[in-house]
Design a protein around this nucleic acid. Structure first.
Length: 309
RNA sequence: GGUACCGUGGCCAAGUGGUAAGGCAAGAGUCUGCAAAACUCUCAUUCGCCAGUUCAAAUCUGGCCGGUACCU
């Protein structure tokens, strides 16, 4: 039995429930892998598992940051890796479940991240990009890291500036850095499970229903409390789907119905991107949900059995 | 029954004689410190139908069909 199981899949596909079921059956603890469930007091909109849903199974990497903090992949990995190791050292199964592909892959691979600039390089690069235009920035990148320049699109401001930032800060190109860290063996070797639906329309219907359910559970109230608690509406956490849209509703700038539709639409787009991300992971054993399909728990057991050696 | 207006991809919509903008939706994809983010690509051989005028028609003419408004 592989002591690490990763559960990937789009939003609203049932990862949380499957994780708990597997944990109960295989003596496991759940490590959440979700870039928004890390924030405290953001519960309903992030679909964070409730106490009842956890069914007594220990869950990690939930509520580990304040909403005004800037969380990141590197921080996630720094915190989650020791937790996984601790679970294993206690002879238990680590069930890493969540939809944030970058976080999950980075944790498993053991990616090292270039140091975060502390000298205001970022601000200077932003200003320079505004003044000189992205063509100039890309040309600059081409002169120091032609490989990165080749794979980045001119419109991809975020990555072009980050590549330059890493170079200025460390003297090493981001391409060289990534190549070096990827040459290292992966930190963990999990058994991968992926959740998907035979019919995309069914996934989208579930997303719509879940958004309605969140409203019923008091999402608006949750957001109101966050704002009253002094959480800046423009911080990263509040950019989460289902939060940013309703902030406008609470301010009276957007009719509720319009925001609800926007949240559903963004969630569908998000789910699609998650599938794109996970699909290229050749290690994933896909559990397909849908009419005529066996119950996923049984499929999961079978895959676990087949890969048990 | 009469008159007027309208009919462009799944939806919205530009184009009024020169060889089908754009947006949304959808699909595919990229991804190493904001990732629930950011970014890329694809998507009408054809403009309700038929006939005509013209070198050339989504654009002009006629008929038909469908819709809308008003009148009777």
């Amino acid at each position: 039995m592989n002591p690490i199981i990763c559960i990937a899949g789009p939003t609203a596909s049932g990862k949380t429930a499957l994780a708990v079921e597997l944990a109960k059956e295989y003596h496991g603890e759940v490590v959440s892998c979700d870039s928004m469930q890390v924030y405290r007091r953001m519960n309903i909109g992030t679909a964070k598992p409730t106490r009842e849903e956890m069914q007594g199974i220990p869950h990690h990497m939930l509520d580990v940051a304040e909403p005004w903090e800037d969380f990141s992949v590197s921080r996630y990995c720094e915190m989650a890796a020791p937790i996984v190791e601790s679970i294993l050292s206690r002879g238990k199964t680590a069930i890493i479940a969540g939809g944030t592909g970058l976080y999950m892959d980075s944790l498993i691979r053991g990616n090292a991240f270039a140091p975060f600039p502390s000298t205001g390089v970022r601000e200077r690069l932003e200003a320079q990009a505004d003044a000189e235009g992205m063509e100039a920035m890309l040309a600059w990148l081409r002169s120091v890291d032609p490989e990165a320049a080749r794979r980045l699109h001119l419109s991809d401001r975020k990555r072009i500036l980050r590549a330059l930032e890493v170079y200025l800060e460390t003297g090493e190109t981001i391409t060289a850095h990534n190549r070096r860290t990827q040459a290292l063996p992966p930190r963990f070797c999990p058994l991968w499970l992926g959740l998907d639906f035979a019919d995309r329309g069914e996934l989208y219907r579930r997303i719509d229903l879940r958004v309605d359910e969140m409203l019923r559970q008091g999402l608006l109230e949750e957001i109101r409390e966050l704002l009253e608690g002094g959480i800046p509406p423009k911080c990263t956490a509040m950019q989460a789907i289902g939060y940013k849209e309703f902030v406008d509703v609470l301010r009276g700038d957007t009719p509720l119905e319009q925001a609800v539709e926007a949240v559903k639409k963004s969630s569908r787009h998000y789910a699609k991107r998650q599938l794109t991300w996970f699909r290229r992971n050749q290690s994933i054993h896909w559990l397909t949900r849908g009419p005529g399909r066996p119950e996923i728990m049984e499929s999961a057991r079978q895959i676990l059995r087949e890969n048990d050696n």
